[in-house]
Simulated scan of single mutants.
Amino acid sequence: MPRAIVCYVRWVDAFNRRVGRLVMLLIFVMIGLLLYASVSRSLFNSPLVWGIEVSQFLMASYYLLGGAYSMQLDAHVRMDLFYSRWSDRTRALVDVLTMLLLFVFLGALLAGGISSTGYALRYGETSYTTWSPPLAPIKIIMTLGILLMLLQCLSTFFKDIARIRGEVIE
């Protein structure tokens, strides 16, 4: 594989690995927040207006920013009825073909995310809840997560092409 592609794969994999490992900690923040909200509501009869919504934003950030790392680890759910029986080259070929469809899907999601984020920033869009937080920060995170997933898909695509050619990109 060309040196530029190998450098791209290494850079994207390293970046998404760092982001994924950092984002993993959000689950503990979310658990702490939900515990605090529960204690506040049941023991002190003082429910948090913002607790559930912040935990939803944290969860969305968790899975959107962690998706690329999950793809890197090959941890996404897949229908494994035939896949595990195929040779490594056949699996790589099927992955390349399905990755092309994923590029189209993620491209459409990214275009929608950019449009939605632009709208939220331009018009100060807020949630329709009592707390009414601005939605731009979570939409920026959403768009960033989709972009990271698209970059990781391209990295995985290059690794699969290398596998088809009998090469390995570490």
Results as ranks from 00 to 15, higher is better:
166 G>W: 10
45 N>S: 13
64 L>H: 13
66 G>T: 05
115 S>L: 11
12 V>M: 08
67 G>W: 07
114 I>C: 09
95 D>P: 05
111 A>Y: 15
43 L>V: 14
40 S>F: 00
33 L>S: 08
28 F>A: 13
162 A>E: 06
67 G>F: 12
138 I>M: 11
93 L>R: 13
163 R>K: 14
29 V>Q: 03
109 L>I: 08
87 S>I: 04
9 V>R: 01
39 V>F: 11
65 L>K: 09
170 E>M: 03
97 L>R: 06
69 Y>R: 02
139 K>T: 02
53 E>G: 04
166 G>Y: 08
122 R>Y: 05
155 S>R: 09
26 L>E: 05
159 K>E: 10
134 P>F: 09
143 T>H: 13
121 L>V: 14
43 L>M: 08
115 S>V: 04
140 I>S: 04
33 L>P: 00
126 T>G: 01
123 Y>V: 13
136 A>R: 02
77 V>C: 07
121 L>D: 06
114 I>A: 14
155 S>L: 12
74 D>V: 03
109 L>Y: 14
116 S>G: 05
166 G>H: 07
14 A>G: 09
53 E>N: 11
44 F>C: 00
103 F>M: 06
90 T>L: 13
156 T>M: 10
79 M>N: 01
45 N>I: 01
154 L>D: 05
31 I>P: 00
140 I>M: 09
42 S>D: 06
88 D>N: 10
57 F>T: 02
67 G>Q: 03
21 R>P: 01
49 V>G: 02
99 M>L: 12
62 Y>A: 03
141 I>G: 05
19 V>D: 06
153 C>S: 15
15 F>P: 06
103 F>T: 07
160 D>F: 05
80 D>P: 01
61 S>R: 05
29 V>Y: 04
41 R>M: 06
27 I>T: 13
63 Y>N: 02
141 I>V: 15
1 M>T: 10
78 R>W: 00
13 D>E: 15
37 A>T: 14
136 A>D: 12
31 I>L: 14
160 D>Y: 04
75 A>Q: 09
21 R>D: 12
137 P>N: 01
7 C>G: 04
98 T>K: 10
104 V>Q: 05
50 W>D: 10
150 L>T: 13
15 F>H: 05
25 L>N: 11
111 A>D: 10
45 N>F: 07
5 I>C: 02
126 T>W: 02
37 A>N: 08
53 E>Y: 04
140 I>A: 09
85 R>C: 01
7 C>Q: 11
31 I>C: 02
152 Q>A: 10
